[in-house]
Design a binder for these strands. Sequence first.
DNA 1: AGACTGCCTGAAAGCGTTTACAGTAGAGGC
DNA 2: GCCTCTACTGTAAACGCTTTCAGGCAGTCT
Lengths: 355, 355
Amino acid sequence: MAQTDTHPDGPRFRGRTTIRDIADLAGVSIATVSRVLNDRPDVAPNTRETVLQVVRERGFNRNRTARGLSNGRTGFVGLMLPLIADAYFGPILSGAAEALYEADLRIVLCPTLHEHDREVSLLEHLVSESTDGAILMLPEESEEELLALQAQGYPFVVVDPRERPPDGIACVSAMHASGAQQATEHLLQLGHRRIAAIAGAEHWYATEERLLGFRAALAGAGMFPDPELIRFTDWQVQRGVEVADELLSLPNPPTAIFGFNDNVAIGALNAARARGLRVPEDISIVGFDDTAQAEIVTPKLTTVRQPLAELGRTGVSLLNRLIDGQRLDALRMELSTTLVVRASTGPVPQRGRNA
Amino acid sequence: MAQTDTHPDGPRFRGRTTIRDIADLAGVSIATVSRVLNDRPDVAPNTRETVLQVVRERGFNRNRTARGLSNGRTGFVGLMLPLIADAYFGPILSGAAEALYEADLRIVLCPTLHEHDREVSLLEHLVSESTDGAILMLPEESEEELLALQAQGYPFVVVDPRERPPDGIACVSAMHASGAQQATEHLLQLGHRRIAAIAGAEHWYATEERLLGFRAALAGAGMFPDPELIRFTDWQVQRGVEVADELLSLPNPPTAIFGFNDNVAIGALNAARARGLRVPEDISIVGFDDTAQAEIVTPKLTTVRQPLAELGRTGVSLLNRLIDGQRLDALRMELSTTLVVRASTGPVPQRGRNA
DNA sequence: AGACTGCCTGAAAGCGTTTACAGTAGAGGC
DNA sequence: GCCTCTACTGTAAACGCTTTCAGGCAGTCT
């Protein structure tokens, strides 16, 4: 009816309802409909109501693509991460995805498989293609590359930086040092004095910070760490097993091991078990991250909880602000970590353990 | 130079390079540039080369959004799944994401958190908003809802259907029955005769099919399953523990347990250990799925491997064909499963186990 | 009464592509 | 030398929305 009236070319059935159809039905111009839809203040209440009425009736939804073309924003955000199916990155991704969905942004998912080249090319894609910005998780990019990217004016946020993050780049991480300190103090309180650290990869930000916290806790108890008891790894279970094995073979082995992530802690668990040691009776083990695996292994792992999903969400909220052109005051955010005590830690064994 | 020549309004610095800039630089019309970019045959070789030259020089990339507006396709595909950070869905998502990236499609990630309402509303969003199609993993949707969606002409593929998939709907799953049969035969070969099944949720497609395979294997050995030894669960670890505990408390307990996913198998592992039973010496346990957890628990879990990533990839390739308007011959695809023997299964204990 | 002010509204110009259609130039046929 | 045909190229109209700009119309102030 109104349709054919206003459109001499007959009823318009060319695909989906458009803003023009709504305008016709409501007897206003498309500009007005657009204004209503964008919650602009300069529309008469009556008009607004009429338009909304029609919109509801027809179940109208604006075309995202057209919107994007018109207002310059694409509504898409790149999400670069090493792996999707991963106990550590999964929850971060999940948090980010949720927040992006709420912010009405869509995702361009880019798994890099830890390959620097692939990451660089993906990143170029993201920039040159139409994304409004990106979240980079544990990026391989060097400080220079990141700064160069920023110089281009492309908005991005680093979540869980690999290296100590350069000034001026928006960055979200967990309180590594504080978490490590809590974990270590927990062991100290249980009476442990010979505490080993199975650290992550050398020079990584997370490794260095956690080491800092580890040392701080020891210092607080008036102790210096035995260099022999600190070992670096690639964060993987296998290396955890190997390194733990070395540690337990020492003439004066540790009574507790602090793994800098759950992987290596689980490795240590396995190594201890392989030697017939009981956990936590003979040796205590702490992890870091609190991934789903910590709950699955036996005994359940005492570990430092990183708010992984929250890291993702926070990253998104920073990115949103960057995209909106707000210059941020706090470019660096650190989320708190908490110790989760489970079953892999206990009082130091009285004496005469059989190494 | 060429820029200011052709544009009296001064050098154009309004954002990114457009097809028009390329046209000016190459001294042709935008239509020609578009033709070159789309590999249309009706362009003179010289012209084509000139344009490509300029495109390369400027590192030009067409604006996706504008393209979408113009040609009707959005280049976006919905990915609906219960959970992102999950040992089971993670790998499927990962495979799908990879395939989508290769097909130059972008993702709209929709975690439903297993909530039917949320799923319905997300799905409406996907359809009414601009996605070209969707992959639905383990959808909550009923058969009717799915058929209705299809009747709307919206292209979608179901990956890992919850219920027996209706005819006419594109659908990818694993060979549940065959996998279950292999697992059961493995136990039979080890001499087990009292084999319990900790099944998944009743009426689920996966549960029914696996049950089929389980029974088939027993039948092959001339046995009927003892109904007492088949229990349904919600697929979660906790229920696995409880149910396994019940089974192990029976007057005549099983010597082997087949968990219909890794979760319940791990639950059984824990339940057995809690009773002081050794795995696999006192009792054998098999899982299903081969998630990352199967490698982490002690002992490592013998389990049926589902090609999870491949499920995702296959789903995408089906969807691509649907979007291209090809009517598919094989709407239903089943990917093969294989038994992975690890350390949680062994020969049946000789006699006189202490239940 | 006339000028002004604010509030609403509509027309129209983009946004960057694709593509239908129209046009041109050169080649070949007569 | 003219016509037709082919091969290529350009013009311009979408695609569906946002937003600027220019009114129109009441009401207000002098």
